[in-house]
Structures are given as C-alpha cells and as structure tokens.
Design a binder for these strands. Structure first.
Lengths: 235, 235
DNA sequence: ATATTAAGTGTTTTGTTGACGCTTATAAAT
DNA sequence: ATTTATAAGCGTCAACAAAACACTTAATAT
C-alpha cells in the first residue's frame, strides 16, 4: 500500500498577516496579487505549500520573499477551509501572523510584489476571505499582547518607553496612563536602560531601552494583566 | 483557467483530541485504528476532509461518528504538516480539541471503533505524531482554562462546586484551597444554585449548580486569573 | 530670561488575592 | 440515643497589586 486511495487531495496554501509599526501607527503589509484570478487586487502574502516543506517552512519562505527577513516572530493562526473560498479550485489556507521590525524591511525586494504598508484602520478591500483573516489577526493580536510581551517584536532593538506605549495604544485603540504604564513595564524586569536618549521626538529626550534577552523567554509566559480592562478582549 | 496548474495537492485530515471528565479523572477518548498502516494501534479519532465540507464540519462529523454527540464545544488547535508525518503519503492534519460531557457519551456507537477512555496520565503509545498532538492539547487546555470558563463544557448540566474543583485540580495537577476556589467561582456570577443537593459524594451533600447561560457568553472573555500561579502555564 | 513640550518619578486609595479557622449537615458507629 | 467522622460551606485578615492623580525635570525655541 503506497497511497490512501479514494481520498480527495486538496491544494494547501499559507497566508501571512504581517504587522509592522513605524513609531506612530500599526500597519499591515499587503501585496498586489500577481496572477489570476483577482490579479492586481490587494491581498495577503501567500503561496502554496511545496512538496517537501512543512507549513511553517512555507510561511517563512514566503515571508522572506516579501521582506527579505529571516528569524521573524511568527505564529500559526487559523485554518480557513471553506470549500468555496477560492473560486478557481478548492484551496485550504493555513494563516500565520508575523511581526517584523519595519525598519529592517527591505523595500527593494518588495517592488517585485508591489507591496505596501497600510495603517490598520485604512486597509483596502482584499481578495477572497483575506479580510476575515485580518480581522481575526487583529483580535488575536489584542488577546495575545495582553498576556505576553510579543509587541516588542515590532520594535527596533533600541526603543523608548513612549514609543512602546504608543504601540500599545494603537493595538488597543485607547489611551494609557504613562505613569502606570511605565511602572508596569519596568516592573517586568525585561528592559535594560541604555545611556543614550532618543532626541527625535522630544526636547528632553527619552531613554533608549533594549530587551533583556536572557529573561525574555522566561517572562514570556508570565506577562499577564498588561492591559487594564480585560473586558475589551475577544477570542 | 479552472485550476492552479503545477501545484501539488495534498491529503488533508482532521484529528480530534477529545476530553472527558468522569467526576474523578480527566480522560482522553482514543480508538484503535481500523486500517493500515498501524492497524489496531491506539490513535486519535480522525479522518480525511471530504470534497464539500470545511475542516470544522469534518471534525464535527467525525466527533459525531465516535460519540453520537452534536453541538459539542470544539476548538481548532494546530496544523501538523511535517512532510513525513504519515509514512504512506503526505497528509496534513488539522487538529481540534473537544470537550464532551462524558455522561452523554453513547457507548454503543463506540464499539464500532473500539474506543476507550484513558486517564490523561495513563495514555498508551499512539501512532504517528498523535502523542505530540495530545501534549499540545494538554498545554492548550491549561492555558485556556486559566483564562476562560471552558471546563464547564466537561461537566453535566448540574454539577457541584467540589466536582468542578476536582476538575481544576486534575487539569493543573495541583491542590486548590476550597474556600478561595468557591469564592472566586461564585464571584463570576456564572453559577445559579439549585435547591437539590448531590448526596452521592458526601454525607452533608453539596448543592447543585447550573450555568447561567444568559451571561456565560459575555463572561467568557473576562474569566481571567482563575488559577493562582500563572507561571505554571505554557504556550 | 522665559515659555513650551514631553519625559520621568512619587503617593494615596481601592480592590483583589491568598492564607487560614470555624461551623454545619448527615451518615455511620457505638 | 449519643458520639464520631467526613466533607460542605461561610468568614476574616493581611499583603499585595492596580488605578487615579500631581508635580518636577531637561532641553529647545522664543
């Protein structure tokens, strides 16, 4: 016996929801689809799984094609498998969401794909069920970021506390008290203050911090209760 | 254009990790696989996705075949897609974990599949990567149950507080203080006390409760911090 | 010199959590 | 009939964490 006979074989794709943060707004990386159907429409970055790669590998490959980046934080989200979601042929899509440091994003590579960053609140119409994927990713982002320090993956190596507060305020669409925020953030012990200051955004300047990678892994689990009102969370 | 040419089509299966609770131990429902390869070995309940069903539908169908139950709490877990995970032919498996009220389980149906409940700590060797699936499900169960009231899905309509405490103690492999536990549980407002008592398990008898389904949905999100030490959690 | 802007630190009040002790209902044993 | 054993159920207190809130500081621009 070499095959399971009588079973239907299906196309399997991966689609990546790629988040970035430019210091002001949380953004989504989208491409203009290069082939029919829906050619030139806005779409998530995706592709079919190849014969000798697992889904994660496929997602990493695709992410690298678009951004030039490797070793990016990525997480499996959900499988979208409605029989008719792709009008051409049944395709199951495994979705991943990924966080990249927008500063490391290599624009030249992206031109091949006509990629563009969109503020999360101003995303264009997307093909197929990609809008549902983005919605789910936003919800999952809120959920996860309230419990774990994943948002650091969106920041450059050196960042300031006001920067990261802005990021949180973006994700939760709320205003946070800077005193409570910084106290909570610093109490995790995850941050190491640098001597330099960021003078770009204020006269006084804000201290740069970097992650203490030695304890980042351990603390990853125990980062609970970061956002005051858990009621606002979904999923 | 009617097909995406040149792409490889793959078998897609679903596998269900089915939890049950008999009032004393948390258990897993396993079957003896009915076909080659690995015929008669212990396995999760699974099957291939059919042409006109989505993955969730497939999982529901399979769950019904095994347990006779419909409308069961079920959640997508993870995709297992290592190219060589099935030695016969590449198969991607979408896993679901499900909670059923073990009392509703219809044993007669199961005989077709040689199904059996195993205490979570005494599971047999499983085929392929099913043990990894079970491990992941156990972790996800711990994680999720600390944040949301999902464990009620494992209990009958009427249950007592000592019962549910035992369930939590099973999941987290720990002993909880009954006074703090019941205070926390009742403070959610999710439970409605009945007049009857369960006299099976003690002389004094414990009040039956049932879920207030009108607020169960709302409270579902805001059930945080249920287990004292979040450090023990993973994933 | 003075005004302006955002960074950064401190305090008080309130609510939540965990540790712990006592009473109550009932069946079984004497 | 009284006592004993067992688990249910209620209550208190102390420690801690969270949220609300106000002032000082550094540096540039006027």
């Amino acid at each position: 016996m070499t095959r399971y006979s009588k079973q239907t074989r299906i196309l399997v794709a991966v689609d990546c929801i790629i988040f970035g943060f430019d210091g002001e707004l949380l953004k989504l990386l989208l491409i203009q689809r290069g082939f029919e159907p829906e050619k030139n429409k806005w779409s998530l970055m995706g592709g079919f799984i190849e014969p000798n790669e697992g889904p994660e590998e496929a997602a990493s490959r695709i992410l690298k094609q678009l951004t030039g980046l490797e070793g990016v934080y990525m997480e499996q989200m959900d499988v979208f498998g409605e029989p008719k979601r792709d009008p051409i042929e049944r395709t199951i899509s495994i979705t991943y969401f990924a966080f990249i440091d927008i500063n490391k994003y290599e624009q030249q590579l992206s031109e091949e794909y006509h990629a563009e960053w969109f503020p999360l609140k101003k995303t264009p119409k997307l093909i197929f069920d990609h809008e549902a994927m983005v919605e789910m990713a936003k919800e999952k982002l809120k959920y996860k970021a309230a419990l774990h320090p994943i948002l650091f993956e969106l920041l450059p190596e050196k960042f300031t506390i006001p920067q990261i507060q802005t990021l949180y305020e973006n994700v939760y669409d709320t205003i946070l008290d800077k005193r409570n925020f910084s106290r909570k953030l610093l109490s995790t012990g995850l941050l190491i203050r640098q001597n330099e200051k960021d003078k770009e955004n204020s006269k006084k300047g804000a201290y740069f911090y970097r992650l203490d990678s030695s304890i980042y892994k351990d603390k990853f689990q125990a980062f609970l209760n970061f956002i005051p009102n858990p009621q606002a969370l979904n999923s």
